[in-house]
């Protein structure tokens, strides 16, 4: 199996800034496991570069970050990266994790029909929160950690050779644990108030395609 991972991480607003920095942890994990990383960051997170890199390098795993909708995901400056019925065929034979809103409700199933091996994504909006004082240090924000760490776990598990089902289960488990913490007496007031949003992410995250698919 091709040990190449492609990651799109646009950076043009506060939300993409957080995702940009949190992807760094996934990149570090992949490098430790000797994967070749195609890091499509900032202006490189565009449709032309993505299509070109996928065609040339045939990555086994595609990690898409950014704003999206049921039938598309965007890259830098909200420009469309992949759209159902337009270029979702480029995801054929790959495992995809899309950290984006609503995408698993339509683009997920169509990409599976077009040959993607497995697709993990969200059928509703993807929520996360942060303290305003942490905007300049996204990785230190404890609230964002509760949301983005379990989300990263999908990729970490896949990189470690686990199946799509195992990666999905791992992420679900940590979201559930984090949610239970957030509603416990050990949680801060803020954590307690944002628990419903993490719960929504947990419920809307789905796995499509071959549950046994793995990249190593």
């Amino acid at each position: 199996m091709n040990r190449v991972i492609i990651i799109t991480r646009p950076f043009y607003d506060a939300a993409t800034k957080f995702l940009f920095h949190w992807c760094r942890l996934v990149i570090d994990e992949a490098k430790e496991k000797h994967f070749k990383i195609l890091d499509l960051k900032e202006d490189k997170a565009n449709k032309t570069v993505l299509e070109s890199y996928i065609k040339k390098h045939n990555p086994a795993l595609v990690f898409l970050n950014g704003h999206g909708g049921p039938n598309l995901i965007t890259g830098q400056n909200h420009k469309v990266l992949i759209e159902s019925g337009v270029n979702d065929h480029i995801l054929s034979k790959k495992i995809i994790y899309a950290r984006s809103c609503n995408i698993a409700s339509f683009l997920g199933p169509t990409s599976i029909k077009r040959g993607a091996r497995a697709f993990i994504g969200y059928t509703r909006k993807f929520y996360f929160a942060w303290a305003n004082i942490s905007t300049s240090r996204p990785l230190t924000d404890s609230m964002a950690t509760l949301f983005l760490n379990p989300s990263n776990m999908v990729m970490v598990a896949l990189i470690k050779g686990q199946s799509a089902q195992e990666a999905y289960d791992k992420s679900q488990k940590i979201m559930r644990e984090n949610h239970l913490h957030m509603i416990s007496s050990n949680a801060s007031f803020e954590e307690n108030q944002y628990a419903p949003f993490l719960w929504s992410n947990l419920k809307s995250q789905i796995l499509l395609g071959d549950k046994s698919a793995r990249i190593v």
Binding site: K125, T135, Y194
Partner: peptide, 18 residues
Amino acid sequence: ERIFILPNDYTLSIGADE
């Protein structure tokens, strides 16, 4: 009322907006 008691110094990302 549930949203009213959210802290004032946090931001929530929902889709393309905060």
